[in-house]
Every structure is written in C-alpha cells, then in structure tokens.
Design a binder for these strands. Structure first.
Lengths: 350, 350
DNA sequence: TTGAAAGCGCTACCAG
DNA sequence: CTGGTAGCGCTTTCAA
C-alpha cells in the first residue's frame, strides 16, 4: 500500500473535474450535477481520500474542533482522574458531537497556568469552548476574546452557561434530612474556587437558617480523603451529629467510612446525603442517597448550543437536580417522598 | 476593546520588520538579532497577538495534537462516563503533555463506526495516537496507515504497546485467594472484545488449573450491575463459594453488594478481589483488595513514546500490576504478604 | 452547472 | 542576520 499524500487536486484530476467542483461535492454544496457528484464520490471512495483539516479550517475559517477547558483547582490535575465528574462531562460532549465531524480537544491547566490556557484557547477556538470550573473572572476574559463559550456551572452574568440548580438542591437535601428527623446536620463542602461548591454552600446556609439549625460546615476538597477527615473532625467537635450533607459523592463515601470506623451506624445513627449521583454513589455501603446532577445532559446541551450558535451573551439553561433516595438516609426514607406534600413543595422557596 | 483579526503581517509591520523575521521570533528560531527579537516580542505582547493554529499547521505540515482513540465495546459510549478508567487515561496523557504545546484530541466510537474512526484518525494524525480498547485487527490497520500509534494494552505483535501484566496479575489474585484459604473461587470477567479482560481471563484459567480448582467464571461486562448479577447467579449455582475475583473494581463493588444482600459476609464468608484500584475501590465497604493498574503511568509512557518518536514497531513496555490489600479479603490478609515467601514467589511462574 | 483564480495566515527556502 | 516570496490544501467568489 502506498500512502502518498492525497490532495483535492488528485481527486479533481482523477474525476476529470475542477478543484472547485470536487470541493463542492466534498462539502455537499448545491450546484453540481448528479453525474459529476457520483463520479467524484467514487474517486474519493476508491482512493480513500481525506481532506486536510488544517487547510480546510484555514480556507473556510470554519469549525473543526470543540474545546473543553478544565481548570484544576490547585493545579491538581490528578483530580481529573479521581473525580468521575469529568469523564461524565466528556461523555456528554461526545454524545452531542456524535455524527458531527467536529472533534473534541481537552485542555486542562492548574490555577497558575489558567490565564495562559484561557488566552490560548480563546485565540484558536473554532467550534467553541465548554468551560469547566473556570472562575467567573477568567470566563469573562475568555468571553471578551471569543464569544463561542459556554460555562458548565454558574459564572459571570453575560457568559453563556448551563447551570444545575445547586443552591436549591443543597437546600432540598438539608430539608430532606430535617424532614426525616435530623436536627444536628453538618455539611462537608467543596473547594472555594468552585462555583458549584459555592452554590451548594449557599443552599445549605439558607436551609439551616430557615430551619433554625446550627451552621456546621467544613471543607472536604471534593475528595474521599477530605470527606473522611471532615467527618472525623465533625464527629469530634459535634458528637451529637445526626445528619451529614456532602457536596459530592466521593466526600460522602469518605464520610460514611469515617462514621462507620468511629462506630456510628449509617443511617441509624447518622443519615448521609451525597451529591452528583456518580458511579460511586451506588457502590458505597449503604448506597448513597444523593442529588442527581445531570452532567451528561448539561454537557451535551452546552455543546449543542455552541454547535448551533445559540449561545448568545446571557444565554442560560437551568437543570433541575433531583434527589435519588437510597439507603444512606434510612430504609423507608423513600416513602417520605411520594406521599404529599413532596419535598420540593416543603422546601417551598421562590 | 476591538478584536480585529490580528495577523503576523500586522506584527511585522508594527515592529518594522519582515514577516519572515516576525515568524522566526514567534518560533524562537535562531538567526535573529537580540534587538529585533525584543522589539517583535514587545509588539506581540502589546497587541496580544496569537498565531493562527490552522495556518501554522498548514504551512508547516506539523500539527501538534495527540489523538486518543477509544472504541466503546458495544457502541456503548456511556461506559466512558461510568468507568473511572478512561478519565485516568486522560489524566495520564495530559500529565505527559503538560509543558508541551501539544493538545489532546479525544475520539470515541462504537464498534460499528470503529473502522471509519480508525481510518479518519490515521489519516490526520500529527503527534500520534494512543489506542484504547482497539482490537488487534484494527490496531494493525491503523499501524499500516500510520506508524505513530501506541496501544494501551495487548494488541497485534508489531503495533507498539504499553501492557499491564494482566494475566500474571489475575494469576496472583487467584493464588492469593487460595493462599488465604479459599477453595471455591469464581471469576467475574470483562467483555470478550477487550484484550485486558482476555489477559485476566487467561491468568485466572492458568491459576485454577495449576491449583486444581474448578473453573467457575461468568461475564460481568465491566459494569457494577453486571457484577451484581454475576455474583447473584454464582451464588445460586455454587452456594459453597468462598472467593470471588472480579476483573474490575466496579464489578467487584456490585458483587460485594450482591453477596451482602444475599446474607453472605465479606470477607468472612466470601473474600473478594477486584482489579484496577480505581476511585471506587476504596469507597466500597469493606474496601476492596484489588490489583493496582498503573493507568496514569501507562498512558503517560505511551504519550511520551509518541512525542519522542520512540515507538518503533514491536516496541513494548510492560507494567507490573501490584496487589493492594484492603479488607475485602480479611482483616489480616495483609500479613500474609510481607512474611516470606511473598505471593509473587509463591505464584512462581516464569 | 462548471472552472479559473484569489486568497486564508503562516512557514521555510533562497538570495542578499 | 534579514527580507522577499513560493507555496501548504482548501474554499469561495466571479465569470463563463
């Protein structure tokens, strides 16, 4: 097999047409007779010709790749491998890209290189960029340089975004715990630099205030170990704890282990609610009651908005975060959901 | 802010030099006086100029992107989101790419579109491609079209690859279970289409034969639900089971749940060993004894080989898969490891 | 409906 | 060391 570099010129020549016609056929553009079309198509198939993406991009200025931009919290790229969240994002983007000839580029940087990455991607964007865990300031910077961006999660007001209802979900989680009888509820939050974590923080705060509970909260860094350490500390400082809300499942898993290791029973002594409904939620024992984040749908929606050019400034799509009740909140906690009034009604805000 | 499209021409003009010189400065090429260099650099910084990637790629022929090619088993892209494995691969690739200006492109296809994807990527490869879960036949096809490929896991002999010692690891896992007293050991395997699953299958078979055990094995499809179903079936068909080897942690997690739900205690009644040491392994209760797959290192090694052009035909790097002992094989199973003779010596093959 | 030709923005070669 | 310039492979007017 000889694999000389094939160009559109070769195709045109072989098919006995001009480069322009060959190009039209390749792009399924109108204005070509059926005969020439089939002739060119045949040659393309026979020779196994593939257009050069760079040349095509240069000449047309058109889309070619969609960029995923992820800023790792403390320059800690390993979180990318440890958190199931990111692969769900990728799965979602890919599902929206399926059928398109758009490719996915993944860009990750720590906080130090964040600005550089943002600028670099902004200047080379084609189809657009999905921003994950990019601070509002940096997202705004990106948006100033390039409009084709959608943030996954809350961000600067004018930057397009798909947003899970984090605050409300956290509120719902806390009020659910309250409803099943918990009165000393603690929260294990995610890192400050994360807007999703901030939203959940806000929801928790609002709930405890409204319910007249103490505001007990620690940081768990979105990691299992952090959740374990946090729960251990909470137990030491508040021995009468009877409920824990963790801002992600990995931390919830760590918390459950810490509680178990300390001789507390979940859910009998302490009920636990996680967040994400990631792959680990169902693996924990007892399986975690958690807030289901529709990551794949959000990522797919963001991608589609970019592809269709629908993401104008201030564009927003909100995603409800529903509770998935498993055993970490008690054997019959699920029963509390269906009989009226539903939790969301109880939560009764807005 | 006006963001007119800046070209190298503008830079050259502003700096009072030729396009060629501006280009040299931008590419840090030698042969430019320090004075002009700083002058151009200043203009670039002032104007915030970013070279056009497409034009650069077209003109130079090189294009700095590394392709990750993933074939999803049964066209099931969702597995990508459900298996922590893939994000570990990405994390590994990214760590090797850090500092380089090489970007990562992620390509995923189901079995139906696999050939097309392979051909497409092969014809547009620049830095190279890391092949994940690509069948030996397709990997060979890719390699015939483009040499810059490394397979993650066993593949056709001449295709470069980084390989975990799957067979040996499975062998070690089984003999470990045997060593701690298990005599009715079952395996829950991964899908046929996966070479890693095949290696583990082979190791299991070799071990049970050598140890004179029955060959009890079912398929769990690398998913938690599959592991649950498999364990349930195994329990029904072999009530006297006392050990389970699962070819991935997700399946092991499912198995543990099935066993627990069936009233069996882990590890007291039945010991369980997983595979991967993924994020879930530590979350399961009891935490899983598992075979640690150095995914990140393998992916990084493959990437580096591509970047350095070291991946000649038949190039191979093998990675040991060590056992991580946690509680799913008994409270003091760890003790069995350190006192002589070590498990690997006991396994005594090769 | 078709073809000729002018670039897209940049690199790299060659001459000075 | 510097500048001129011929392409890289493709798209897209503009005429025919």
């Amino acid at each position: 097999m000889t694999y000389r570099k094939l160009t559109i010129e070769d195709i045109a020549h072989q098919a006995g047409v001009s480069r322009a016609t060959a190009s039209r056929v390749l792009n399924k553009a109108p204005g070509v007779s059926a005969e020439l079309r089939t002739r060119v198509d045949r040659v393309v198939a026979d020779l196994g010709y593939r257009p050069n993406a760079a040349a095509r991009a240069l000449a047309s200025g058109r889309r070619d790749a969609l960029d995923l931009v992820v800023i790792a919290c403390h320059g800690d790229i390993s979180l990318f491998g440890a958190q199931p969240y990111y692969s769900r994002v990728i799965a979602g983007v890919l599902s929206a890209l399926a059928g398109t000839d758009t490719q996915l580029r993944v860009n990750v940087a720590g906080a130090e290189d964040a600005t550089e990455l943002i600028d670099r991607v902004a200047s080379s964007v084609t189809a657009g960029a999905v921003l994950v865990n990019v601070s509002p300031a940096l997202a705004a910077r990106f948006h100033a340089r390039c409009r084709k961006a959608v943030s996954l999660g809350a961000t600067a007001p004018h930057v397009p975004a798909v947003e899970p209802e984090n605050s409300r979900a956290a509120y719902d989680a806390i009020s659910f715990l309250h409803r099943i009888g918990c009165r000393r509820i603690a929260a294990i939050h995610g890192p400050d630099c994360n807007t999703c974590a901030a939203g959940r923080r806000a929801g928790h705060l609002e709930a405890v205030r409204e319910l007249g509970l103490a505001d007990i909260a620690v940081d768990g860094g979105f990691r299992r170990e952090g959740g374990y350490a946090a729960a251990t500390r909470l137990l030491a400082e508040h021995p009468d704890l009877d409920g824990i809300f963790a801002a992600c499942d990995m931390m919830a898993a760590g918390a459950v282990q810490a509680l178990t290791d300390a001789g507390r029973r979940v859910p009998d002594d302490i009920a636990v609610v996680g967040f994400d409904d990631s792959a680990v939620a169902a693996c924990v024992s007892p399986p975690l009651t958690t807030m289901r984040l529709p990551v794949e749908q959000m990522a797919a929606t963001a991608t589609r908005a970019l592809l269709e050019g629908a993401a104008a400034p201030h564009w927003r799509r909100f995603f409800p975060v529903d509770m998935v009740v498993r055993s970490s909140t008690g054997p019959d906690a699920a029963l509390l959901l269906s009989p009226a009034p539903p939790v969301s009604a109880l939560a009764g805000r807005r």
